[in-house]
């Protein structure tokens, strides 16, 4: 075989070789990989924000509805109104002017209460008061 030291004299043919039917196998390998990639891309698109947001919103609404239905008690409205009424009356009683109440007392009792106050202030014997 002729040995040469000048590159221009080399045959430019491909010195490397490949296994038999390599290129048809290469093509099907690439196609297989890209098909897998397509299905992955499809799944990714399925999980995109456009899909996830409405699904999550629906689930959230369902949970709220479910929670409301589960905890709903028709009597609770009456209980609530009674509680509000009691709180209102207590508030009114606490804040009412006592002098206003005196008007409803009979005159004798009113005077009697003044006397009691006087006796208490002067450390009078309680037995005497009761009598």
């Amino acid at each position: 075989m002729k040995q040469t030291n000048n590159i221009e004299q080399f045959d430019k043919k491909q010195s490397f070789i490949v296994p038999e039917n390599y290129f048809s196998k290469l093509k099907s390998d690439i196609q297989f990989k890209t098909e897998n990639l397509e299905s992955k891309i499809g799944f990714k698109n399925y999980l995109s924000i456009k899909t996830i947001v409405p699904v999550l919103a629906s689930v959230f609404l369902l949970l709220i509805t479910f929670n409301y239905v589960k905890t709903f008690d028709p009597k609770s409205d009456n209980v609530l109104s009674e509680e509000i009424y009691t709180e209102f009356v207590e508030f009114e009683i606490e804040n009412i002017d006592e002098e206003y109440l005196f008007e409803f007392l009979p005159d004798e009792e009113y005077a009697f209460s003044d006397e009691i106050e006087y006796l208490i202030d002067n450390n009078t014997d309680y037995d005497l008061i009761i009598k």
Binding site: M1, K2, Q3, T4, I7, F10, S15, F16, I17, V18
Partner: peptide, 15 residues
């Protein structure tokens, strides 16, 4: 070590 090389010694030297 390449099994898939079909060139002669000169071509191997070129590579």
């Amino acid at each position: 070590s390449e099994n898939y090389f079909d060139g002669n010694e000169g071509e191997k030297k070129l590579q």
